[in-house]
């Protein structure tokens, strides 16, 4: 899938609407940041989703993080292959690594998400902040 056609949440999930079906995954940036995803837990078909509320979880480096839904609706399909083998997510986050499909009850909620261009700026800012933080820590160590 072309990331330029996707919408992105500030929590790094992407969404793509085909009619009222919304395909959801996590961004390449998130995959990179999470680093070595060891577990992915997805909901069951038929479970409800609520915008910005968790629908699943991932574990990487002893950290469990939540995956948030981009819209209200109901799960109609999950990517069981990713649950069985999280490496698929790392290898192709915008394609084979998709996570869930939601029958959206309000697809207009995706308007709240960022475009690819907006998301690129967002992650650049986030990366800069982290780099500044790292430099500060290194300076502190040097001083110590």
């Amino acid at each position: 899938m072309d990331p330029k056609k996707l919408k992105f949440a500030d929590t790094h999930e992407w969404a793509f609407a085909q009619g009222d079906i919304v395909i959801v995954g996590i961004s390449d940036y998130a995959v990179h940041e999470l680093h070595e995803i060891t577990y992915v837990e997805l909901p069951s078909v038929g479970d409800p989703t609520v915008q910005a509320e968790p629908f699943g979880e991932v574990e990487s480096v002893k950290t469990v993080a939540e995956l948030n839904a981009p819209c209200d609706g109901e799960i109609v399909e999950i990517n069981e292959a990713v649950g069985d083998d999280p490496d698929i997510l790392a290898a192709d986050p915008y394609g084979d690594g998709w996570l869930i499909k939601i029958q959206s009850s309000d697809v207009d909620q995706l308007v709240d998400l960022m475009s690819w261009e907006q998301y690129k700026l967002y992650i650049e800012e986030e990366a800069e902040e982290e780099e500044d933080e790292e430099e500060e820590d290194e300076d502190d160590l040097d001083e110590a």
């Binding site: 940041e33 999470l34 680093h35 990487s60 480096v61 002893k62 950290t63 993080a65 986030e126 902040e129 982290e130 933080e133 790292e134 820590d137």
Partner: peptide, 11 residues
């Protein structure tokens, strides 16, 4: 607190 989990571990 940094944003990345690994950086929080480290700090």
């Amino acid at each position: 607190f940094p944003g990345r989990a690994a950086h929080i571990f480290e700090k």
